[in-house]
């Protein structure tokens, strides 16, 4: 299995710092959720899991988190792909290549506060619209924070993920030689729109699919932005899990761990999907 000592060392480092903490954490969460450990637990029980599914809160929470991640990711992917295809030269050098990094410097919590101030009912945008005479009262501005459709969360998440995808797609545009493929498609008779939809977008999407799934995993676990900009119901998975783990009722803690177990299983399944997708890519 290990041909060189360096392989044993690298495997041990990977095991100690990456696999072991994950396995221990997951094992602890499983044991806690089934009542095997924990101060208030009294031995193996399914009660915590049954209690968790007594109402639809957990299912709704997962669907809601997935919806937020999918909505913000879809907008980010579409906008950044459009930027890469139409303005790739501008974003590969010069001032634009620096500007695109700006939102990366914003921690999620800062972005969440900014959008709370900017998009709120009496926020900056509302006041600008009032001063411009677009609305007759400041309060007439549509509610984009803690709103029914989670527009504030989606905008904030979009803002945070746009630079990542713009950099990804402008990089892929160069490395995957989209320009050459476009010229070739045109030479075979394709109009610009046809080469974009039949060649550029499918290549960029296929190449970025693992990144999209990984970013989805990252976004489905988002905490600060939904906490500050979202409603109290429905809650995202992370907000619900933290409430169960840290808030008032100590008997809810095993349910918090049960949510963490479900979340981990979903994430690991998605990672398996990514690994399977990347498999079998070889050149003869």
């Amino acid at each position: 299995m290990f041909k060189k000592p360096i392989n044993i060392i690298s495997f041990l480092l990977l095991f100690v710092f990456a696999i072991l903490p994950l396995v221990l954490g997951f094992g602890f969460a499983v044991a806690y959720s089934f009542g095997l450990i924990g101060v208030l637990n009294k031995g193996f029980t399914l009660e915590n899991w049954l209690a968790l599914f007594e109402n639809n809160d957990v299912v709704i929470s997962f669907i809601y988190s997935a919806w937020l991640a999918i909505a913000s990711l879809t907008i980010s992917v579409v906008v950044s792909m459009a930027i890469a295809i139409n303005f790739n030269k501008k974003f590969s050098k010069g001032i634009y290549s620096y500007l695109v990094y700006m939102p990366l410097a914003f921690p999620s919590i800062v972005a969440a506060f900014f959008f709370a101030q900017f998009l709120g009912n009496a926020g900056i945008l509302s006041r600008i619209c009032y001063q411009l005479g677009i609305i007759d009262k400041i309060q007439s501005f549509p509610n984009l924070i803690n709103d029914q459709y989670s527009i504030g969360i989606i905008i904030a998440q979009f803002f945070l993920s746009l630079p990542f995808f713009t950099l990804l797609y402008t990089g892929l545009y160069q490395t995957e030689r989209i320009d050459d493929y476009t010229k070739l498609a045109n030479s075979l008779g394709a109009k610009n729109r046809q080469s974009i939809f039949r060649i550029s977008i499918p290549i960029l999407f296929k190449k970025s699919f693992p990144n999209i799934v990984l970013y989805f995993i990252f976004k489905i676990g988002a905490y600060e932005v939904p906490l500050l900009l979202g409603r109290s119901s429905p809650e995202t998975v992370s907000v619900l899990a933290v409430r169960k783990l840290q808030k008032f009722n100590l008997y809810d803690i095993p349910q918090g761990y049960a949510i963490a177990v479900i979340y981990t299983i979903i994430i690991l399944s998605l990672l398996m999907l990514v690994l399977k997708t990347n498999k079998n890519e070889y050149d003869i």
Binding site: E176, R177, A185, N186, S187, I203, K206
Partner: peptide, 20 residues
């Protein structure tokens, strides 16, 4: 006439098959 309307095919040094 635009390249896509000339009906002349340019074959690059590499085959450049569409990978998708």
């Amino acid at each position: 006439i635009k390249s896509n309307e000339r009906n002349i095919v340019y074959l690059f040094q590499e085959p450049l098959l569409f990978p998708n």
